[in-house]
């Protein structure tokens, strides 16, 4: 049928685009390249392909055009540096996080974005910095979630407070806070069940969990971090807004940056909501975590594989 012909053509088109993208980029930012319409069209493609979003991309390109005019830039090289500056500035709220003593970190996010894994990595990181760490198995919903965090706790060598599957998540967190206080643990990291942000009841549950921590542990530095999957597209903005509404997130961890996705959606989130990106996850291993660096992030984004 005609449909198949279209697919075949499109498929070929995509392959070609992907192959030529790398070439074009090296020439796009390759030094003396001209700053013409082609340049801006290619740039648009790169930014949109990085999940920055059509609207934010437009804004960035506009800012770059202004800058080019103002500074009378001539070469792609100069433009690249300007671009990095513009995007880095948009993410200026992002800064590395230094845990205080005591700190409690609540990790929230939709299903499968890497919450439990990043808890393992964070625990290991802080422990290696000489802090004492405890986990709370707040995902009492998903099958074998408690076991999963338990295995990470063993790897890290940290205690893990857990109840049975199906029990009340807020109650686990409550117990964990008590226990962390009693043991004078430096950093308590709490897992939560993955939940889609449009499920009202589940989001209300999160509100409750958050207020338990607020009430029970006012002296701790309270961090609520939204875990995002770098492969996620524009929906991440809706996620951030919904989670912020019930639990006041003050940080983002951007997981799965080891794939081909660029995670550009955090630019909008960071910029509009002023929520700093704290870490990026770069694999499934215990050490696969890095503090977020906006400039580096930006450079990686415009350098395609």
């Amino acid at each position: 049928m005609g449909e198949n012909g279209f697919w075949a053509k499109l498929y070929k088109g995509l392959t070609k685009t992907r192959e030529s993208l790398a070439d074009k980029l090296s020439s796009l930012f390759g030094g003396a390249g001209e700053l013409d319409d082609d340049f801006f069209e290619e740039l648009e493609m790169i930014l949109i392909s990085a999940d920055i979003g059509a609207v934010t991309t437009e804004r960035i390109i506009e800012a770059l055009r202004d800058e080019i005019k103002k500074e009378k830039m001539k070469t792609a090289d100069e433009a690249r540096e300007a671009l990095v500056r513009i995007i880095t500035e948009m993410m200026s709220t992002s800064e590395p996080y230094e845990p205080k003593k005591p700190t409690v970190i609540l990790i929230v996010g939709v299903n499968g974005v890497g919450k439990t894994t990043v808890i393992g990595k964070l625990g290991n990181l802080y422990k290696s910095e000489g802090l004492s760490v405890m986990f709370a198995a707040g995902d009492t919903f998903r099958a074998a979630a408690v076991e999963q965090l338990g295995i990470w706790a063993e790897r890290v060598g940290a205690p893990c407070v857990k109840h049975q599957e199906g029990s009340d998540s807020a109650a686990v967190i409550f117990d964990a806070v008590r226990s962390a206080k009693a043991k004078k643990t430096d950093v308590l990291i709490c897992d939560t069940a993955g939940r889609l942000h449009n499920k009202h009841n589940l989001m209300e549950e999160l509100r409750k969990i958050n207020s338990v921590i607020e009430k029970e542990y006012p002296e701790a530095d309270r961090q609520v971090w939204l875990a995002l999957d770098a492969t996620t597209g524009q929906n991440a903005v809706a996620q951030a807004k919904a989670f912020a509404a019930v639990s006041g997130i003050n940080g983002i961890v951007l997981n799965k940056m080891d794939g081909t996705a660029k995670g550009g959606i955090v630019i909008s989130i960071c910029n509009e909501m002023e929520i700093p990106v704290r870490y990026i996850g770069v694999g499934e291993g215990i050490d696969d975590i890095r503090p977020f660096d906006a400039t580096e992030f930006c450079r990686a984004m415009i350098k395609t594989a």
């Binding site: 995509l14 992907r18 949109i48 392909s49 990085a50 999940d51 939709v110 999957d229 492969t231 996620t232 597209g233 524009q234 929906n235 991440a236 794939g259 081909t260 996705a261 660029k262 959606i265």
Partner: peptide, 9 residues
């Protein structure tokens, strides 16, 4: 919820 990377995957 996958973004632009869906085609590569």
């Amino acid at each position: 919820m996958t973004g632009q990377d869906a085609v590569n995957v």
